[in-house]
C-alpha cells in the first residue's frame, strides 16, 4: 500500500450518463486516465457535461454505464458513503454548514471516520494554518462571519481534512472576486506542490486552467475530449478549431507566462536596463519591455547579480518558429 496521503491514479473507461427521456447522453463514452499526483483540469463551456463527469467519480451522479477505478479499485462496487469519505470534495457554492463553527465544519469527515477528539483537534489546527487562517481567530467563528475568500479556504481545508488521496473540485474559486481569485489560485498552487494529491478540477475559465493545471482536458458537448495535454502543448498546438476557439486570443502571452526566464538563452546585459529575476516569467519580461519602451531587459540570478539580458527577439524565439496568422498578407 503506497503512502495513503499521496495521490493515486483514477481511470474512467467508456463512462456514459444518460437521463431518461433524452436522446443523447449528458456524457458519452468518456475515457481518461489521471496519473497519481496529477492536477487535471476539465475545461469547457457551461452544460458540456464536465461537472456531470466529475460527479460520477464520487457517485453524486450514478453513471449509466462504463467503469471508474481509483487506485485500481472499482468505485461502483464500493459503498457510496464510504467512498465519498475518502474523496475530497469542493463545490463552487462552498456549502459550509452555517450552524457549525469553522472547526466543526473542518472536522466533519474525520468525525465520520471516527477519529479521536484530540486527533481531530490537532488536524483542524494544522489545516487552518495550511490555508493561512489563524486557528485562534477563526476556529470558533461561524461561516457567515467570514469573507467569501476565507470561506472558500475553509472549504478547501474541509475537503483536505481526512487527507484523501483524491480531490474533486467544481469551480471552487468561481464565485470570488478577481483579486481574491488570483490569490486563492496562487495559494492553491503552492499547496498542491506540497501535498501532491490527484485532483480533478472543473472550470470554464481557460486562464485558470493554464495557471493551475498539469494537464488540461478541453471538453465539448456531451463531455467529448477535444484535446488533453499540458497547457504549453495545447497553447502551442491546439488540436482543432474548437480548442483554438476556446483558447481565444492571447495564446502567445499565456504561453510566455508558463516559461520562466531561467529556461531561455540570455544575451549580454547592458548597464542601463531595468532588471527581473530568473524565476520571473517571459510574460513579465515582455511586460517590462513594453512599459519601459527599451530594447532589452536585464536578468538577475538568485544571488542578485546580473546574469544576462532579454530582447523582444529572444522572447519570441522561446515560443519556437514565428507562426504567422493564416490569411495575413505578407
Amino acid at each position: 500500500m503506497p503512502d495513503p496521503t499521496a495521490g493515486v491514479g483514477i481511470e474512467l473507461s467508456d463512462v456514459t450518463k444518460r437521463y431518461p427521456g433524452q436522446e443523447h447522453g449528458a456524457v458519452e463514452d468518456f475515457s481518461l486516465r489521471v496519473e497519481p499526483g496529477e492536477l487535471l483540469m476539465f475545461v469547457g463551456p457551461s452544460g458540456c457535461g464536465k461537472t456531470t463527469t466529475m460527479k460520477m467519480i464520487n457517485r453524486i451522479i450514478e453513471p449509466t454505464s462504463g467503469s471508474i477505478t481509483i487506485d485500481g479499485e472499482d468505485v461502483l462496487s464500493l459503498d457510496p458513503n464510504e467512498l465519498r469519505r475518502h474523496i475530497g470534495y469542493v463545490i463552487q457554492q462552498i456549502g459550509l454548514f452555517p450552524h457549525m463553527t469553522i472547526a466543526e465544519n473542518i472536522a466533519t469527515v474525520p468525525k465520520l471516520l471516527g477519529w479521536s477528539k484530540a486527533r481531530v483537534a490537532d488536524r483542524v489546527d494544522e489545516l487552518l494554518r495550511t490555508v493561512a487562517l489563524d486557528p485562534g481567530v477563526f476556529a470558533h467563528r461561524y461561516p457567515k462571519q467570514l469573507s467569501g475568500g476565507q470561506q472558500q479556504r475553509v472549504g478547501v481545508a474541509r475537503a483536505l481534512a481526512a487527507d484523501p488521496p483524491v480531490m474533486l473540485m467544481d469551480e471552487p474559486f468561481g464565485a470570488t472576486d478577481p483579486i481574491t481569485r488570483l490569490r486563492l489560485q496562487e495559494e492553491f498552487r503552492r499547496l498542491q506542490a506540497d501535498i501532491g494529491k490527484t485532483i480533478i478540477f472543473v472550470t470554464h475559465d481557460f486562464d485558470e486552467a493554464v495557471r493551475l493545471g498539469d494537464r488540461i482536458a478541453v471538453l465539448s458537448e456531451r463531455s467529448r475530449i477535444e484535446q488533453c495535454d499540458t497547457p504549453a502543448n495545447i497553447l502551442a498546438d491546439p488540436a482543432n478549431e474548437y480548442v483554438a476557439g476556446f483558447i481565444g486570443r492571447g495564446a502567445g502571452l499565456m504561453r510566455l507566462a508558463l516559461i520562466p526566464i531561467g529556461e531561455v538563452p540570455l544575451e549580454a546585459p547592458d548597464d542601463s536596463s531595468a532588471a527581473l529575476g530568473v524565476q520571473d516569467s517571459l510574460r513579465d519580461a515582455l511586460d517590462l519591455l513594453v512599459l519601459t519602451g527599451g530594447q532589452r531587459v536585464n536578468v538577475t540570478d538568485e544571488s542578485g547579480s546580473v546574469a544576462g539580458s532579454l530582447t523582444h527577439a529572444g522572447i519570441s524565439a522561446a515560443l519556437g518558429a514565428p507562426r504567422l496568422p493564416t490569411g495575413t498578407a505578407p
Binding site: 463545490i91 457554492q93 456549502g95 454548514f97 452555517p98 469527515v109 465520520l112 474541509r158
Partner: peptide, 21 residues
C-alpha cells in the same frame, strides 16, 4: 440550501446523518 446538502452528501454523510446533523 441545496449546496449545503450536496456538500454534506459529498463528504460521505448517510441520508440519516444529513437529516439529523
Amino acid at each position: 440550501d441545496a449546496a449545503t446538502r450536496e456538500a454534506a452528501r459529498g463528504m460521505g454523510m448517510t441520508p440519516n446523518q444529513v437529516l439529523w446533523r
